[in-house]
Simulated scan of single mutants.
Amino acid sequence: MDFAGKTALVTGSGAIGGLGHAIAKIFVGCGATVILTGVDRARGAEVVADLGGGARFVRVDLSSVDEVRRLADEVGPVDILVNNAVAYTLASTVGQDLDEYDGAFAVNVRAPFVLTAMLAPKMAANGGGSIVNISSTAAAKAEPGMTVYSATKAAMEALTRAWAAEFVEGNVRVNAVRPGPMHTSKLVGALGPDLGGLGQAVPMRRSADPSEVAEVVAFVASDKASFMTGATIATDGGRAAI
């Protein structure tokens, strides 16, 4: 894949070992300039150093709509937007804290909505672009304790279809990638080293390495997927098949 001359904004990419880091690594390796985001400057600097050039870090709190707007203004026109940042809240409906509920929707749904609204028209004005939304198997499969998280990811898949139709005239493609259990530092921290046994629930009987999912994201973002828009691509070890 060739991303030479292209600029990509990858949200939630400011930590070593996460999906955003893996996506950024492929983009940089294929010639793109990458803008990373996160809330921790020190960890973001580690990712920039790991990528060895071609990337810069912007600290942003995506739960704040004012900061999301600032981010969109600061980065200017981009060719690729990957809405990857995520806030987890793991609770039953009865036990769900409503502040965490609001926070999850702010980061997982409202931030991508605002970024897309501000950046997609700039992409269209420059001849087109690609937006990739990171979903989850939880959008379509019930997972205990993931009620709110599941709802946010289902919302993103609905927005993917709507945006694909809305921005097609501007040659802006919008797709989603739906990973299954993935061995990232954030998920390990939330669910434990074995991801709560989720890896054993898929036909391939393991969780994914972030690099495996990142390869699919990069393909979907690339010109090799030029006739693809409005699609949700399962990258889940067969979870969608059962």
Rank of each mutant, 00 (worst) to 15 (best):
P179G: 14
G180K: 08
I233E: 04
F57P: 04
T235M: 12
G103E: 08
D2M: 05
S64I: 01
P77D: 13
G54D: 09
A155E: 07
G199C: 06
D236L: 11
A231P: 02
V47W: 03
S64N: 11
G12H: 02
V188K: 14
D2L: 09
K224G: 12
V202N: 08
G103K: 14
V174R: 02
A120Q: 01
R205Y: 01
G5P: 03
V174N: 06
G197L: 11
N126I: 02
D73S: 15
Q200S: 15
G44E: 14
R110A: 04
F105K: 06
Y101D: 13
V114H: 00
N126T: 07
E215H: 07
L81C: 05
F57G: 12
T232M: 07
G20R: 07
G180W: 00
A208P: 03
E212G: 12
P203I: 12
A240T: 08
G238R: 06
V220E: 06
R173V: 05
L98H: 13
I131R: 00
A234P: 11
G12E: 10
A241L: 15
G127W: 00
N175S: 12
V114I: 11
V148E: 08
A22D: 06
V132S: 09
V148T: 15
A106F: 03
V109F: 02
V78M: 00
K122Q: 11
